[in-house]
Design a protein around this nucleic acid. Sequence first.
RNA 1: GCCGAAGUGGUGGAAUGGUAGACACUGCGGACUUAAAAUCCGUUGCUCGAUGGAGCGUGAGGGUUCGAGUCCCUCCUUCGGUACCA
Length: 1220
Amino acid sequence: MYKYKPKQIEQELLRRWRECNVYSTQNLNAGDKKYYSLYSFPYPSGSGLHVGHAEGMVANDIMARYYRMKGYKVLFPMGWDAFGLPAENYAIKTGTPPQQSTENAIKNFIYQIDRLGISVDWSKEIGTHRPDYYKWTQWIFLELFKKGKAYKKKAPVNWCIGCKTVLANEQVIDGKCERCDSEVVQKEMEQWFFRITDYADRLDSDLEKLDWPRGTKQQQKNWIGKSYGTRIKFNIVEINDVIPDQVIPQTNNSLLLKNIHSNGNDNLLSKSTKDGLKISVRETSETDLKEKEIVGCLEIFTTRIDTIFGATFCVVAPEHEILEALKNKIQNWDEVKRYISESTNKTSLERQTQKEKTGIEIKGLRALNPFSGDLIPIYVADYVLINYGTGAIMAVPAHDERDYEFAKRHQIPIRKVIQNDDKNEGEKDDELFTGYGRLINSREFSGLDSKTAIEKMQNWVIDKNLGRKETMFKIRDWLVSRQRYWGAPIPIIYSPKAEKEGYGYVPKDKLNVLFLHGFGSSGRKGWRIDFEKEMTKLGHKVYLPDLPNPLAPSFVEWENFIIENYLKAFDQNEKVVVVGHSLGGLLAFKLAEKFKLAKIIALAPATPKMDETVDDHLYTSESLNALKDFFNATKDLNVASISKNVDELIIINSKDDYVIKQKSQEFWKKLFKDIAMFVDFENMGHFNNQDLPNGFPELYAYINIKNNSPYPGIFPVNERDLPVLLPVDVNFKPTGESPIKLSKTFNQGVKCPIFGTDAFRESDTMDTFVDSSWYFLRYTDVSNQFAAFSMPKLLPRYNSPRNNEIWETAKEVAALLKDLNYAFFGPLAVSIINGGPYKQLSEIDVVASSHHLKSVIDSLIKNNYELITTEQKDSGYTKLRKNNVELTLRSISLEVTQELKFIEKYYDGVMLKVSTIEDLIEYCKEKNDNEALEMLESTYNQTNLWSPADIYMIGAEHTVLHLLYSRFLTKFLYDCGYINFSEPFTKMRHMGLILGSDRRKMSKRWNNVINPIDEIEKYSADTIRMYEMFMGPYEEAKPWNDRTENGVFRFLNRVAELSDKVSEDYESITQKQRVNELVKKITTDIESLSYNTAVAKFMEFSNFLQEEESISRDVWEKFLKLMAPFAPFLTDHLWNLLGNDNSIHLEKWPDYDGSISSVRDIKIVVQINGKVRGTLTLKNEASESELIELVKQNESISKYIKGEIKKSIYVKEKILSIVC
RNA sequence: GCCGAAGUGGUGGAAUGGUAGACACUGCGGACUUAAAAUCCGUUGCUCGAUGGAGCGUGAGGGUUCGAGUCCCUCCUUCGGUACCA
């Protein structure tokens, strides 16, 4: 008899699956059926995998295996959310660098995940702590910063007095530091934020589209907290004299109101009123009208403007600016000040837990209720929060619980203005009613219901210019700074010099950028195309005009051309930046005499002096004459008007300029010494296209750098300098400082990007939530070196040939290869082999697969190319030369990249570097090769093709933050045009918590932790897989039960033993039908994630087979296939036992056969007056009346029929219901 | 307080408005064994009844329906989230 021996078969199968690459991911093409099974990547903790991980992973694994068998291309990756506090704490404790402990933990995780039989493709592994990942986390930070979605501001942090360091919330225990037990205080520090609030509305409304658990969606909605209300101004007046009576009688002060509203100046109240406006008011309704100066105004936000007549006081948060602004007028300022410092010193936790509503009145000031006209007291109290709404409220004690509580405590009058119409008769009116109702005591608004009143009152407010409707959100911007070591460094540079001078980066500045080329050149050419791309990405509009007659330029012609077509045509409100190169630089200065410009960047500008700019022999006489005139027309520069018209002037030169001489550079330095900033480079030549083959990133920066920046001294790290590596020369012994700050290497060589002076890096790292908010994109293209993920929009830049001769030769070689029927392009492979897109080339690279290389060389020699070196063993290069151009030929391994596979397949494996990927696409179009085109485009589009994830399994503890942040970044990247989907996870499910057998949460403390590997050792991997799926509904919490687990193990044993009964030629209709039904059930169960019932059905089926004499092979095979996603080891083994040598996991999923009908007899339940009284068993279908006849004949049923049959209902093949 | 999810045997749980308790665990009885473990067979919602069978049963109460665990209303309990959000 066959015995199930899991230990033997599992090891063997793991080895075989690895060898045969059973689970490798295929590249996706447009139109392919795909399935992206996403598991929330774990934190690789030292304690390894726990049963909760196993539950989610197995669930994902079943999906992945099922869809693979269904013929889908499946992406099932795994990675590590590796940054974070535990590894850092471990480092502090033991001195082990986090890099090391993390990688060790990862090795253990991989081992454990493999043992579970999870079919992940490890070639897609990522770790957020690895530079090739966090490089792109940093890139995303920069994108956010450049687009104005990342900013810096002061925010309170937990500061430990003892350690002199910032603590995470989790490190603060009862207001004390977890490490040294000393006091933790709130300290204001500059912190980086992401502007997630800009996306609040979309994050809220797009929830509708998602197939997520309802509760999770609701929680996100609550977190975002959208509410509609009114923002309205209350003017503040000073009351110097007697402090008026606290009690404000029900006012009927229409005179007062008239006074305010009919003074012929509707704007009176809306003005910011520091300019001594006066109004007549009464301090109480008994006192006489008095002239009062409006000393300020308080903006409040309310959702219940219908209650405004009941507003008997206002409250401002302790941090509210008005307190400081009007402190001279506050009579009890000392008292107020004391209260402010008391409450701002409280931690947010303390403020939350305190029950009593403290606060004090601000004496000497009153707010004017714009509706009632009452002068009402203003309080400062910390139950009002500075960071919601306006930080100030109108308090309506009669209709708001908190205001009621406060009013009671401080003896403030309560005025009822809403009548509860819904209350039952005889019920007494409560003093507090927070619902909607009918307005009373609200003058002309009395009698309206709340909803109508809100609308009318809002209109009144808008009409009087006192405020506006407003939608408010609870959600706050995302604080991403962490003063910790083990995270991705924030890629920002601080320059003290620039800060002093006021220079800094300006994000999100929308500009018209006008480029003026120089003599003999044209606009859209060379690096300017890159320039245009980069600027457009930042939201600028770029103009690259071709100036008329570049070889014989006329100043008047050029000037008019630009003025008429551009400067006059621009929207007057838009800022204009002119970048002038060489002669275009000179033109720019002349234009500035007449036009307002935000900025001129002059690149090696020509001077209006013939001898300083021009080497005679290089020009034709026609050109020389034109230039002579040009310089004549420009020689008198009006420095004063230029200085007046241009906000900023930047002149950029290079020491090795071969056109503009040093003397001429000095000319400008003298002329503009007080108004321009001068930047000198060493190796930029004349900034011509051949001088800057890699583009001119510095220029991109200068466009967005300016004086009076909101971020003086702050600069983004240049993209090509990413990643900013975490330093390793650090000491983890607790010193109170972040280890990064004490690194000697971290700031080495960091220079100010404009002044070149010493600068230093941001030492904060990013919140680990940033790492995990985009990892699902990286999975789709893990090895992309050019971009964070596949972005057709951001294809890598390629080098263009450096000079004309090379270009011409390249074309010749290309033509030659074309003749040989080879393709003549292929920049990608070359770039990769050469180590990235920024390498400069001085030669032509031809890349070919080795068996093509020989014929290429032969053919080149035939065409007069001279052989310099033959293939060298170490390098694999062959060099040839013609004229002055050197050709480097090399053979390559075709596995380098997908691009190479493409070339190999379609173009016989020969490539010549020419230009850009766009050329390649153009070429495919030219050749009408749609298949190639598709493949090429899909290669650059894996992210869009795979995304969004088809299923996302994640613990229920991540209902808000991670999911919200991921959605935010996805939307941001979508808005940038980098991806074509705006939601990352269309379908998401939570795995339910697995509790200990004592129904408590698993914890070392309760000694109830189950380790999956122990269970695998005890039973088998298939057992723990199936057991975890069988425990109960996937999404619900359920306790562990060893007994049930053992039952699953026994089931697997029985299945194994059943294999003895399989018979090649045995046929059974019943078995055929039963397995056919099973196919249907399992298929629907998997798709609806009802894994527990699927397992039950397997058991049922196995019980059925147990009864059978013999099992037909076909039935058995189907059964194994159906169970393969659940028990991959046993099924694959039994599959092989049948003589199949391939893996069952590569088999096709069985189809349900609708033509096999159920043989089983039709069973009809008979109900009489709603009670089940029996069943009828039929061989064939019968009509309702026939059935009733049968019932009448059946004594045991018909005895319940008392009297006439009044009515009968027949549900086909199910039930017959008789009413009598 | 507010928001969400859920209440079914001794236990985990199953049930497109159509025979409530599938599947499994436990318990009980039995087989095998010197014995135990393992395995196998029978039985297992409650009450009454010798049996056939009858009645009652899905947190409580009410409603819709021929028929309700499922739909509607009111209430209770448990769990999860959140908390001065004006």
